[in-house]
Design a binder for these strands. Structure first.
Length: 689
RNA sequence: GGCGGGGUAGCUCAGGUGGUUAGAGCGUCGGAUUCAUAACCCGAAGGUCACGAGUUCAACUCUCGUCCCCGCUACCA
């Protein structure tokens, strides 16, 4: 739609796909949400002869990678190397047609990101907070704003946060707080000198309002637009660009040892670095793709990335000054797997590299299934049964079958030579007419990022062919009217040719196979459905089956494989335990006053999801405790329970309620909480030691 | 709790600015057919458009409220 509404006509296209995080392989969720649509879009643009660069790469910085490395006893570089190559290889085998697939640990990225930062820095676009920051000595770390509480200078509320006062809603900075405390240790944090740089997002609010809320009200997807509006209306805050970490892009400023760029800052710059890498390899100029007004920049991402690509990265680009902003960010929702959320850590996924091995030469089947079920407007569920049905009932039955019956008939009646058309009936003309409309029909859907609709239109082209063939029944006419049969098959062959061309963005492997069967060279999109694609007299090759039936056993195997994952996950409760904490002395332990107590009343705390306000009979007194268990227990089922109480924990105000102590709970798998009971009923106030 | 998105046939989804019998694909059932990987083609059944109220001559489409799912966010001593 933006294509039609925009007065601009674009000379070139810059298509980016979210950089996969290099701490695990790629799975179907990534593919359905990002890479399949992005690849279809890029291939379509190329087919139209547009100048397009399609960018991908691995995101290799950030804390999770360092944690994984430590856990496995290897370096962060080892971790990212492993997954980078694995991801890159599986993308290539799957037919994701990147013009460049780079990585953020590459030198060119470090220098690009570094330069980007330095330019903002030198032009005064970054707020430098060189002042002292709160530091928790007990935990040996600097405290983020949210980890500091204190008294609000405006309303005197005692439990205001470092970034905002919950009571009066005022935005704060930690320095505003009177009597600050560390949330981590409860200690008073010391001031320690550190230097960090911030991107003042609030400065770009007018720009963002105009650009998104006014300029893209109608051409951006509602989920994307709504999310952006929500962020902007909530008020934007300065966002730290740097942090204290040793894995990432070094901050290129004197006195910034031990600091790197925040991963959210360096990752999107990776798109630019990758383009520069491509430039070096091809000798082409990269800058027009990023800096020329007649370039159309499109980011394909999942919904978790909306804020970065619609708010933060555009602010960075705008601050830098020489870059264009994205024309659209068609973010998708999430794909679930057999009813459950896909999870890398829980191994609940269909991994691309495994699929490629278990379903060799069936890339297009997955591409088809994922595109047809892409979570464009809401989360969607991938099931193996659906996958099987998509292949057997649609790809094979409609598309494959149509091609096969046409080619078989052509060989049977005309020895594989394309017969000439003679006089055309109204039905013939109508059919040719409809066929010729498909490049435009499909294009219209693709230009507006409606990939499911586009794919379904492609199938309608095959349906058109099937219906035409069935209605005309050439197998009944051959003996009496071979000339008529020639015309019918000629038209059918043209439809096969159109399918070969128009399928390419969606089903590139099938497209190639079909072209080969037809002994045809690829033609441009606009000429893709002309009735002269196959000239009379042209010899076609022997047909082979484009798709094979997927049997129940194969599906059953996959379902059982997932079932095993489910079981493993349940058993892993005992395996995946947290490491032991540091030793403490008996005295440390003895300082805790643990007692048996009984819950006498319970009610939900208003405006919270997790909190219950409990009254306890502790044997020595009656006290109020606020506990975060409301997601696991209703107030009713909790009353009367005997529990373990940490009785001498320093009181704390939670959501305006004074809480004296804490109920001890054990947390099981999937965050389910359970109470600790005494083995027998025992009097309240009994000491635990 | 706040904000955003979504709740339409068994399944997956379409349904600009409200207007005749609410659409498609798949599945199901029936018919027809044999060129084709029991596929294709035709037809049918199937929906109180989450629920309640309101605005209107008229609401799936607008307003308000409620419930459920997803995400962001707050909260979990």
């Amino acid at each position: 739609m933006d294509q039609q509404k925009s007065p601009k006509s674009f000379k070139r296209y810059t298509v980016t796909s979210a950089l996969p995080y290099a701490n695990g392989p790629v799975h179907i969720g990534h593919l359905a949400g990002v890479y399949v649509p992005a690849d279809i879009y890029a291939r379509y643009l190329r087919a139209r002869g547009r100048d397009v660069i399609f960018i991908g790469g691995s995101d290799e910085h950030g804390v999770p990678i360092t944690i994984k490395a430590r856990k496995e006893g290897v370096t962060p570089q080892d971790v990212v190397d492993k997954y980078h190559y694995m991801i890159m290889e599986s993308f290539e085998k799957f037919g994701i047609s990147f013009d460049v697939y780079s990585r953020t640990s590459a030198d060119i990225h470090h220098s690009t990101a570094s330069d980007f930062f330095r330019k903002l820095y030198e032009n005064g676009k970054l707020a430098e907070k060189e002042s002292e920051q709160f530091f928790d000595e007990a935990n040996n770390q600097f405290l983020a704003d949210r980890y500091i509480t204190g008294t609000c200078p405006h309303c005197s509320y005692e439990k205001a946060y470092g970034d905002q006062c919950e009571n009066c809603g005022t935005s704060l900075s930690p320095n505003d707080l009177i009597n600050p405390k560390s949330v981590l240790s409860g200690n008073k944090p010391i001031m320690k000198k550190t230097k960090h740089w911030y991107l003042p997002l609030q400065d770009y609010e007018p720009m963002l309002r105009q650009w998104i809320l006014e300029g893209h009200k109608h051409d951006w997807k509602t989920n994307v637009y709504g999310q952006c509006k929500s962020w902007i209306d909530q008020g934007l805050q300065p966002r730290a660009v740097t942090r204290d970490l040793d894995w990432g892009v070094k901050v290129p400023v004197e006195g910034a040892d031990g600091k790197v760029l925040y991963v959210w800052f360096d990752a999107p710059i990776g798109y630019i670095s990758a383009t520069r890498e491509w430039s070096q390899e091809t000798g082409k100029d990269w800058e027009p793709y990023w800096k020329s007004d007649d370039s159309k920049l499109v980011h394909f991402i999942g919904k978790d990335n909306i804020v970065f690509h619609c708010i933060i990265f555009p602010s960075m680009l705008h601050a830098e000054g020489s870059y264009i902003l994205p024309e659209n960010v068609p973010a998708n929702e999430f794909l679930n797997l057999e009813g459950d959320k896909i999870s890398t850590s829980r191994n609940w996924a269909v991994w691309l590299h495994e699929y490629l091995e278990e379903f060799p030469d069936m890339q297009d089947v997955l591409r088809y299934a994922l595109c047809a079920a892409a979570p464009e407007a809401k989360d969607n569920d991938f099931t193996w049964k659906d996958f099987q049905a998509r292949n057997n009932n649609e790809l094979l039955a409609i598309y494959g079958n149509f091609v096969n019956r046409t080619l078989v008939l052509t060989h049977k009646y005309f020895d594989g030579k394309v017969p000439a058309r003679s006089e055309l009936s109204d039905y013939d003309k109508k059919t040719i007419d409809q066929m010729e409309k498909y490049p435009e029909i499909i294009a219209k859907s693709l230009e507006t990022y409606r990939f499911r609709e586009a794919l379904s239109e492609l199938m309608n082209l095959a349906r058109l062919g099937n219906k035409y063939l069935t209605d005309n029944e050439p197998w009944k006419l051959f003996k009496t009217d071979p000339e008529r049969v020639a015309t019918i098959l000629n038209i059918n062959l043209q439809i096969c040719g159109a399918l070969a061309v128009l399928s390419e963005p969606f089903l590139p492997f099938t497209s190639r196979k079909l072209l080969e069967m037809l002994s045809l060279e690829m033609v441009s999109w606009d000429n893709g459905a002309k009735p002269e694609i196959l000239k009379a007299g042209h010899i076609i090759n022997q047909p082979a089956l484009l798709f094979s039936k997927i049997e129940d056993e194969q599906i059953q195997f996959q379902i059982e494989k997932l079932q095993q994952t489910r079981e493993v996950n349940q058993n892993e409760e005992s395996i995946d335990v947290n490491p032991l904490k540091e030793d403490i002395s008996y005295e440390d332990f003895a300082r805790m006053d643990l007692r048996i107590a009984t819950i006498t009343t319970a009610e939900k705390v208003a405006k919270t999801k997790k909190l219950l306000k409990l009254t306890l009979d502790s044997g020595v007194d009656t006290r109020t405790v606020v506990s975060g268990i409301a997601e696991c227990f209703t107030p009713e089922e909790v009353i009367g329970k005997q529990v373990v109480l940490l009785a001498n924990l320093r009181p704390k105000v939670i959501k305006g309620i004074e809480s004296y102590g804490m109920i001890l709970m054990a947390e099981g798998q999937d965050k389910k909480l359970t109470f600790l009971h005494p083995g027998a009923v025992i009097k309240n106030g009994s000491i635990i030691s």
